[in-house]
Design a protein around this nucleic acid. Structure first.
Length: 233
DNA sequence: AAGGGATGCAACCGCACAACA
DNA sequence: ATGTTGTGCGGTTGCATCCCT
């Protein structure tokens, strides 16, 4: 039987962050349900984990993606599709969530640029705003296809507009050419063509995920520690 | 200066999978 | 072999801030 207690949701407060960090420091970044319980945070283990992984983890970089990171994301997405966590492992200090958000943002940007360039492709070229040149964009064969980005695309049953599917769809015949209302793959391919020629990303570091995995402790230890904690608060 | 749309990011949800009893 | 629990992942949403008119 699970007793239904109202779990807290929504943004984390600074106090909660401090508290979570304290307990993760004590118990390691595993056993999230346990941490959630003993910390007294009225959060689910899941929520605690997410907060730690995406925000509190000491190894995290913050701020804008560097150009080489952008390249890496593009290239790895081209290879692996929406395997965000996998991609994140190749970008130390970046989280899957961050990369996912980045991708979404830039897909949106790109989509809009494309839309613009389609609208007035007869004369004024669009100024590229993303990382490097995108001069070859308008060489794509999709110049006549209907662009259905933004809100309308959600009508496109189940596929979010930034979900190109990556690898998933490259070999798939489910995406019939004829049925494409819009083709992110095509668009992104164009972008890729511009960027992937650059071997810059080759430096690709050996994926140190950065989690301290040496936290070995027994249940017995847990209980002892718990006891101490309870006494100290 | 104000209002509205665009953007970026944090957080939640649902599902899948692995470990364990 | 099976059920339960914990964790991880990908997709989606909500909200605060920024920017433009």
């Amino acid at each position: 039987m699970m007793k239904e207690t109202m779990m807290r949701k929504g943004p984390w407060t600074e106090e909660e962050d401090v508290q979570l960090a304290f307990y993760v420091d004590l118990f390691g970044d595993r056993r999230w349900d346990f941490i959630a319980k003993v910390s007294g945070l009225n959060r689910t283990g899941k929520s605690c984990r997410l907060r730690w992984v995406n925000y509190l983890h000491p190894g995290l970089k913050r701020g804008k993606m560097a150009p080489h990171e952008e390249r890496l994301v593009l290239d790895l997405h081209n290879k692996w599709g929406n395997r965000w966590s996998r991609i994140a492992r190749k970008l130390p200090g970046r989280t899957d969530n961050e990369i996912k958000n980045y991708w979404r943002t830039h897909m949106r940007k790109k989509a809009q640029e494309r839309k613009k360039s389609n609208n007035n492709n007869t004369n004024t070229p669009v100024s590229p705003s993303f990382s490097s040149s995108s001069s070859s964009c308008n060489s794509s064969s999709s110049s006549s296809s209907t662009m259905a980005f933004g809100k309308t695309v959600s009508e496109n049953k189940g596929r979010s507009f930034y979900d190109t599917g990556g690898m998933k769809h490259h070999n798939s015949e489910t995406l019939e050419e004829s049925s494409k209302v819009y083709s992110m793959d095509e668009i992104w391919k164009d972008i890729e063509d511009d960027t992937s020629t650059d071997p810059l990303w080759d430096f690709c570091p050996p994926a140190p995920v950065g989690y301290p995995n040496s936290m070995i402790w027994s249940i017995h230890d847990e209980e002892l520690i718990m006891h101490q904690i309870n006494n100290s608060f």
